[in-house]
């Protein structure tokens, strides 16, 4: 996966969420975004995922510019996958329908093929026994795993995950992270924001430290975690690693 983000600016009213953010990733399978809350990780992911249009700046994903308007972004979103922190699933549909409906309506599969593909996606992550449950009948960790199954059912080019485990307890966090690792090892290209430093260190190929709407540091995890170059990132790391 190749990313070229140049001078990206996104403002919400008075707050500048992304402040001329520039980031170049030549070739990474897993890119982890870390940094303090409010630093701009979610906003960057939303722009990369085609859910938010920036005020200025350019974004190229795998050497193709991000489409400009809402209409152009729809096929882009269909090509990729996105998972939020929580409440990803549609509460009125079963786990299986949550996966099958987008395959049918957004990807144009016929109903039978959509259901087969959805079943296969659930089976792949050991979720078959939950196929006919509503999201409210699943634990938070199961919901996120179904969410990931939905996001990868159509074999996305890039999977974007915005703090996929922040709303979960440690055990559920582990089950979701294991799944993400499995995907990464299978070759899925992933950009995720996370507060799980151990996971970022082990699974990511590159880490970008984002604070105040900019990339303060960008390095392979070994270097980033052992000898952080910027004072901001070393202060952040010493604080989150302390406990």
């Amino acid at each position: 996966m190749k990313l070229e983000v140049d001078q990206l600016v996104k403002r919400y009213g008075g707050t500048t969420a992304l402040d001329s953010l520039t980031l170049r990733v030549a070739d990474a399978r897993v890119l982890a975004l870390i940094g303090p809350s409010g630093g701009g990780k979610s906003t960057l992911l939303r722009v990369l995922g085609g859910l938010e249009t920036p005020d200025s700046g350019t974004v190229m994903v795998n050497s193709r510019p991000l489409p400009a308007g809402e209409v152009g972004l729809i096929p882009y979103r269909r090509r990729n996958g996105f998972l939020f922190q929580q409440f990803n699933l549609f509460p009125h549909l079963t786990a299986l329908e949550n996966i099958a409906l987008p395959l049918e309506k957004a990807h144009g599969l016929d109903r039978g093929a959509a259901r087969d593909t959805a079943s296969a996606a659930l089976g792949r992550f050991g979720l078959s026994s939950h196929a006919h449950k509503l999201p409210a009948q699943l634990s938070g960790g199961q919901q996120q795993r179904v969410g990931i199954a939905r996001a990868v059912a159509h074999q996305p080019e890039v999977l974007f995950l915005d703090e996929p485990t922040s709303a979960l307890d440690p055990e559920m966090t582990a089950e979701v992270l294991e799944l993400v690792q499995e995907l990464a090892e299978a070759g899925q290209h992933i950009v995720l924001s996370t507060h799980e430093m151990g996971f970022a260190r082990e699974v990511a190929d590159e880490v970008a430290f984002i604070a105040d709407g900019r990339v303060a540091e960008h390095a392979p995890p070994a270097r980033f975690f052992n000898e952080p170059a910027s004072p901001d990132s070393s202060r952040f790391l010493s604080r989150v690693m302390r406990w």
Partner: peptide, 27 residues
Amino acid sequence: IPRTQWDSARAVGFDRIQVYRHVIIPQ
């Protein structure tokens, strides 16, 4: 309907009409 439902519906690739038809209006 919470914002996350609109976001999720857009994220799975639904267009504006599909967002209403399959996600927002049923709920």
